[in-house]
């Protein structure tokens, strides 16, 4: 199934179909992840790959056009490179430990501690969360920074979303009048549930699959739905871009601040043991704060990126050509 979808993506020239096929591909991958026991990852992949990525891609297609031209250059060289790389990889797998063998070195060295001791050391049942937020907490901090960097990049490129001044600019093609009663009522019923679910995922991440990142994505999807049904202008009124900028930064600061507090309390950076009286309580508190930071930042970053991409349809960018001799002596 995955292979067929992937091949179809190569062949298709309708970009709309390509993007939708990629969504299908992501969903299939998520199912595969569940089969391979990676429930947290499956959750994320479904939310990201089939959710937010698709929304962003479709937003781009609105501007970039739906059809791709036929490829002009011959595909021989890329094909050659790809076949060579693939062959090298397959050759390399022959000495790999076999699939799902419990005797793999991968399962023998570092992992057992996570599996057997994390409950005693951290005190939460979901090992993925304990490894993510505590043992390898700095990776997650890095991940948060990557998302934040993407936001800075998108805003630098597409401009900061702002509320428009005049009310007349509300276009007739969006907004509740256009969507009709079925969609508006349906959405207004759905959105509270989505937000509720996001909060559940946020705070239940210690015990089941889920956590800050997934919660952030779900939260964002609620706003995307709102924007689709009620129009972007109303969404701006509901949640101001300036507020989102503030929250996106504060999430990062919350994460980093947790690290700094642990330094002040005489531990290493992100050492949650010192945060409270007992190490376990400290770990709980630390993971809670850190996940909250992730959730806040991811939600506001994704909403902002969505705003930027949607708004960029109408925005103009001045680009000066390179050879302008007319720029005279300044100052």
């Amino acid at each position: 199934m995955l292979a067929i979808t992937a091949l179809a993506v190569i062949r298709m020239r309708s970009l709309f179909a390509v993007v939708i096929l990629f969504g299908i591909y992501s969903l299939l991958t998520a199912v595969l992840f569940v089969v391979l026991d990676a429930v947290d990852v499956a959750f994320t992949e479904a939310a990201v790959g089939a959710g937010i990525s698709i929304v962003l891609m479709l937003g781009t297609l609105l501007i970039a056009g739906r059809r791709a031209d036929a490829d002009t250059h011959t595909p021989l060289l890329p094909l050659f490179i790809v076949v060579i790389t693939g062959a090298v990889l397959v050759w390399g797998t022959f000495d790999m430990p076999h699939f799902a063998d419990p005797q793999d070195p991968a399962h023998q060295h570092v992992a057992p501690r996570y599996i057997y001791d994390s409950l005693a050391e951290i005190g939460i049942p979901n090992m993925v969360t304990s490894v993510l937020a505590s043992y390898r907490g700095f990776d997650t901090f890095g991940e948060l920074i990557v998302v934040f960097t993407a936001l800075v990049g998108v805003m630098a490129l597409l401009g900061i979303p702002e509320r428009r001044q005049s009310r007349r600019q509300v276009s007739e093609k969006t907004g509740p009048e256009f969507s009709g009663p079925i969609l508006t009522i349906g959405a207004s019923w759905m959105i509270p549930f989505i937000v509720l679910f996001a909060l559940y995922v946020q705070f239940h991440g210690d015990f089941g699959p889920g956590g800050g990142f997934q919660a952030g994505v779900i939260f964002c999807s609620a706003f995307v739905l709102y924007a689709l049904i009620f129009g972007i202008e109303l969404t701006y009124k509901t949640v101001r871009p300036k507020l989102l900028i503030l929250t996106s930064a504060s999430g990062v600061l919350l994460y980093a601040g947790t690290g700094f507090v642990s330094i002040i309390l005489d531990g290493n950076f992100l050492d949650y043991n010192v945060l409270s009286n007992t190490p376990k309580a400290g770990q709980h508190l630390g993971i809670f704060l850190v996940e909250l930071g992730v959730g806040i930042t991811v939600a506001s970053v994704l909403i902002l990126i969505f705003f930027s991409i949607v708004q960029s349809r109408k925005r103009r960018y001045q680009m000066q050509p390179d050879n302008h001799l007319d720029s005279q002596v300044r100052e």
Partner: peptide, 12 residues
């Protein structure tokens, strides 16, 4: 709840 609404919006 969702699938009739989504069918509706697709047709729309």
């Amino acid at each position: 709840f969702t699938s009739p609404i989504s069918s509706h919006s697709v047709v729309k």
